[in-house]
């Protein structure tokens, strides 16, 4: 397969960055997330980013329209992101699968979210196969192959001293071609490195079906007890897509409407005018999160809404682990 030496990574990135915005996982101020590439940025491909790449297509806050209100008059003015091309470099299988989950939500079922679509359509995703499982990774348990993902435009493989690269789509081939033109590619027959057995494993098969009859199960009476209802799990999750439409007022006459991340863990999330909350306590909120990931989403879109990236497990303040929930569901007795 075509390959480039790891030592030439910076040249590869420079080449790609010369064609448009290039997002790379990097460490800036001790935060590991995707940043637009700069020559002085500390690129880090050792492990997956702490913050998922979902924020590139679905930023935590974005402006959607300006509004004005003068007396009985008012107006709306659309704000759309620029439709520019970008490359996401180094996306792991878990995050690639998560992008497909996001695509299902934002691009299908009758309506397209123009904000997501505009960013997503211009993106070329260069995935990176994992040769080492992270401490909290369990993508293989969610049916993914850590080494490659067919949803990517191009796939990188860890060949030891080299990264192998294969184009999958027209957009991906362009990336390969750009690197070839720059003289960075050679042929390599080295074996693709694969991760050793995952420390964290769980059997997720049939969980969605089993949960069908478990909405009222006593399991949910216990799971919430240590949860603090913070939004860490949902904000780090590469598939959690809930958002709020809120606003920032500039003055009493004008302001901007914003679309910003929201979390089913928060009390305001489902609170209705008049004060009724269909999911009033921690129990209902915790149940909603896991049911959404493991039953509702599969029922609607035919895939789990958990890709085994392990970010929620790594950062949950109380170690409420989705793998443990899956195990408990598997072991639970269901009447009838």
């Amino acid at each position: 397969m075509k390959a480039f030496p790891k030592a030439k990574l910076q040249e590869v990135l420079k080449t790609l960055a010369s064609k448009g915005t290039l997002y790379v996982p990097a460490l800036v101020d001790e935060t590991h997330r995707y940043y637009p590439y700069r020559a002085d940025i500390q690129v880090s491909l050792e492990q997956n980013s702490a913050i998922s790449p979902k924020e590139i297509f679905f930023p935590s806050t974005e402006k959607i329209y300006n509004f004005t209100a003068y007396g009985i008059d008012g107006d709306y003015e659309e704000i759309l992101p620029d439709r520019t091309a970008c490359v996401l470099f180094g996306v792991r299988s878990c995050d690639m699968q998560a992008i497909l989950c996001m695509d299902d939500v934002f691009l299908t079922r009758g309506y397209i979210d123009e904000y997501y679509a505009t960013r997503r359509e211009g993106a070329t995703i260069v995935a990176l196969g994992c040769s080492k499982a992270g401490a909290d990774c369990f993508c293989s348990s969610m049916g993914l192959n850590p080494v490659e993902h067919e949803g990517a435009d191009a796939q990188l493989y860890d060949l030891g001293d080299y990264y192998g690269i294969q184009g999958r789509t027209e957009k991906g081939e362009k990336v390969v071609e750009a690197l070839a033109v720059a003289g960075l590619l050679s042929e390599s027959s080295a074996e693709v490195l694969v991760p050793e057995e995952f420390v964290l494993q769980v059997d997720s098969e049939g969980i969605a079906e089993k949960l069908q009859a478990m909405f009222e199960h006593s399991l949910w009476d216990q799971l919430w007890r240590k949860c603090i209802n913070c939004g860490t799990c949902t904000y780090l999750c590469p598939t959690c897509h809930c958002f709020d439409i809120s606003e920032k007022k500039k003055n009493q006459h004008c302001g901007v409407k914003i679309k910003c991340w929201d979390s089913c863990m928060f009390n305001e999330y489902a609170m209705m005018a008049g004060g009724h909350n269909p999911r009033p306590s921690k129990k209902e909120k915790v149940r909603q999160r896991f049911m959404h990931k493991l039953r509702y989403f599969p029922e609607r879109y035919g895939k789990y809404q958990c890709t085994g990236c392990g970010r929620c497990i790594a950062k949950c303040p109380v170690n409420l682990e989705i793998t443990d929930v899956i195990n408990q569901v598997r072991e639970a007795k269901v009447n009838g």
Binding site: V105, F106, R109, G110, Y111, D113, F215, H241, C242, F243, D244, I245, D262, C264, Y269, A270, M271, M272, A273, P278, Q288, M291, H292, R295, Y296, F297, E299, R300
Partner: peptide
Amino acid sequence: LEMRMKCGIGKCGRCNIGS
């Protein structure tokens, strides 16, 4: 049925009852 809604187009998440 009535639930809190924000987007109205099945994206923002909050108005689900089951799937």
